[in-house]
Design a protein around this nucleic acid. Structure first.
Length: 256
DNA sequence: CTTTGTTTACGGATTG
DNA sequence: CAATCCGTAAACAAAG
């Protein structure tokens, strides 16, 4: 260690708010989303100050996660079982900080009622999707892929098939993105945009000042949507081989 | 039981 | 000054 002098902040309290710390943790992960326990771990790993009084600050941090609209709770994938959900940043929450540095917050990020309902609908749909997926897995286990082909993930129009896909049809209608309408919505297209993993393993140990947040590239799909899409794509791929890339109608923009 | 999550409340600090 | 942000405590529900 050539620079032992450059500790993180030693036992001093780092000049970051909980919102900043949490955003750092989330942003440091390849998928831009982390379960609560890993947010804790990120913070404790590089800020020794937070290795003590854990009850206190972790309560505060959880409060921030729930309270602030800038954090979004994404349901856990069924193939990654575990306790809590994943937390990510709201796509529109990036201009919350000056310079993208996370040092100082410019303004509070608050969703409007409608936006919030929208998001909640998407997330609820995602959760519904998960439940349906799990149910299906439970029912049909032994034989290889006993899935009634192409019953999954069909658009509302053609949804008069097996009993349960009604649920899924509803999901289809709501969960899909509002943005990026010109994009072909196929499995392949969804799987492709795996973002370049800049840091395969956590840099660790030597960041005394948080690396300036990667400049936000607004042309990039939002981390949440990216993850959600890839998430769904993986599920679908695992679920149904014979799944036709089901074209989804572009969002019908609500008339005012 | 513990962890995770939601919510309300209050006081101090900051900012315009 | 008021509005907003921030940290903390605490009560409680839900889930594993």
């Amino acid at each position: 260690m050539p620079r032992p002098s450059r500790e993180s902040y030693g036992d001093q309290k780092p000049p970051y708010s909980y919102i900043s710390l949490t955003a750092m943790a989330i942003w440091s992960s390849p998928e831009r989303m982390l379960p609560l326990s890993e947010i804790y771990r990120f913070i404790m790993d590089r800020f020794p100050y937070y290795r003590r009084n854990t009850q206190r600050w972790q309560n505060s941090l959880r409060h921030n996660l729930s309270f602030n609209d800038c954090f979004v709770k994404v349901p856990r994938r069924p193939d990654r079982p575990g306790k809590g959900a994943y937390w990510t940043l709201h796509p529109q929450a990036f201009d919350m900080f000056e310079n993208g540095s996370l040092l100082r917050r410019r303004k509070r990020f608050k969703l409007q009622k409608g936006e919030k309902d929208n998001l909640n609908a998407e997330l609820a749909a995602l959760a519904t999707f998960n439940r349906a997926f799990l149910a299906r897995q439970a029912n049909a286990a032994p034989p290889p892929a006993p899935l009634p082909t192409a019953s999954l993930y069909t658009p509302p129009m053609c949804s008069q098939m097996s009993p349960e896909p009604a649920e899924l049809a509803e999901v289809t209608a709501t969960v899909l993105p509002r943005e990026r309408p010109r994009r072909a919505f196929t499995i392949d297209a969804l799987l492709e945009p795996e973002p370049p993993r800049s840091s395969p393993s956590p840099p660790m140990i030597t960041m005394q000042v948080m690396p300036p947040l990667p400049r936000i590239d607004l042309s990039m799909p939002s981390p949440y949507m990216l993850a959600a899409h890839r998430y769904q794509a993986e599920l679908l791929q695992a679920a149904a081989h014979a799944l036709r890339p089901c074209y989804l109608p572009p969002p019908v923009l609500p008339v005012a």
